[in-house]
Design a protein around this nucleic acid. Sequence first.
DNA 1: GAGTGGTCTAGACCACACT
DNA 2: GTGTGGTCTAGACCACTCC
Lengths: 263, 263
Amino acid sequence: MPVSPAPRQPREASLAGLPAASEALPEYVPLYQQIKSLLLRSLQLGEWQPGQPIPSEHELAARYKVSQGTVRKAIDALAAENLLVRRQGKGTFVATHAEEGTRYRFLRLARDVGGPPPALDRRLLDCRRMRSSEEVARALQLAPGEPVVEVRRLLLEGERPVVLDDLWLPGAAFKGLDAAKLEQWRGPLYRLFEAEYSVRMIRAEERIRAVPASAEAAALLRLPQGTPLLQVERRSFTYGDRPVELRRGLYHTASHHYRNELS
Amino acid sequence: MPVSPAPRQPREASLAGLPAASEALPEYVPLYQQIKSLLLRSLQLGEWQPGQPIPSEHELAARYKVSQGTVRKAIDALAAENLLVRRQGKGTFVATHAEEGTRYRFLRLARDVGGPPPALDRRLLDCRRMRSSEEVARALQLAPGEPVVEVRRLLLEGERPVVLDDLWLPGAAFKGLDAAKLEQWRGPLYRLFEAEYSVRMIRAEERIRAVPASAEAAALLRLPQGTPLLQVERRSFTYGDRPVELRRGLYHTASHHYRNELS
DNA sequence: GAGTGGTCTAGACCACACT
DNA sequence: GTGTGGTCTAGACCACTCC
């Protein structure tokens, strides 16, 4: 019981592994945020696997010697960031890209006319290992020339190509990833990454612009060259804000669109 | 004190004004959600104005005869939706589009190269009252032909046009809105709407696609016809999910982009 | 110092899922 | 029934803001 009739003091001593960053570090950190950091560390270290339950609130409260309410608040924060999923009566689970409902949760493509989500087919066009370009190295925070995996693929609705995706992954983290692996895989890419390479995408930033289809893109998407395409450039991050994927998608938005919610 | 050694039962009797909707209504609604609905109603009725503080948690707890913790949870939920803003030591305030930091919070345009947010100039091109088209009526849930206000404007960075905005508002809710009013107004449009017309935008949906610049758009944006533009179609909603604005923006994304965060 | 939101606790009870 | 998360309470104390 760390807090009592004694002045509240940070637990910094017992809490290594926090970023601490460069900024003026706050002298007071609420207990529940410290617990949150501990949970985050366990997640990062793989103590609990995606899809699996973490210990009960009661148990965690005992482990960290705080009240259940404090553990609760820490879990609430992580659930709000989609790192954990609470299920009443069952437990709290490590988020995964595997489940119905959260599969493709980073894909904001929608059909113009109602109906269920697109349900796109994939066609792998290319997968090769290479030395990273300047641009890719910068985006992935690698040294220029470090090995990366480059993947190109199409997403199709029926026979119609809708998205041309190029993506780059740090080679070191994805040893063994190759065309065969991708070809045989059924399901979301991010599910493959978390299951086989222990890389969990938890957050992403996108930059969107309109560009004319290059000759190459036009051919692959079977469109006239110069057709306006939505270029979606995504950087995905894993724990600790480490970028682990750069992706450039070209969306044909004649009968689809990118949807977004603002609040 | 509604909950005690008695079986927990809904307060429906004392809580009118809830949507109740069409769906199978849940037989059990947590107290804090009921309180949330009450707060929402007060907001909708204008009992507290944007930028002004709402009563303290203590006072609200007394008013609704629940514990402070329950009020707290209700406020937390509303703060998470950006309807309220908490400020430690000062109070809880009704969100507004006026403040630095939340001004233009629906505008996701960013400059490619770093630096502060765009800081765009505006140029009003047109403002007229007219009968709504089919399309606009559908989007705003009006009967076709009902009066709407149509506005067209440019956003410029220095001398360079970056965005061409067309927007439509229900005429009934915006009596007196005209070109003069818009010309003289300094600050975010949504601030004008909440200050002068009591219309508060709390949520929006956007559909984004790439389109070629029409002759008209090209001329206004000073670009070659056919230049790919980002078309951002936004529907903004006020309390009760009532749509009160349709907006179609054409963004020139040569040195700007639309940014988005996924999680 | 007084008032506000923010944290933390301890305990009771409820809703839900599994067995 | 047992165990899980979810709600609600009451009270103590802390951090922040303004007078």
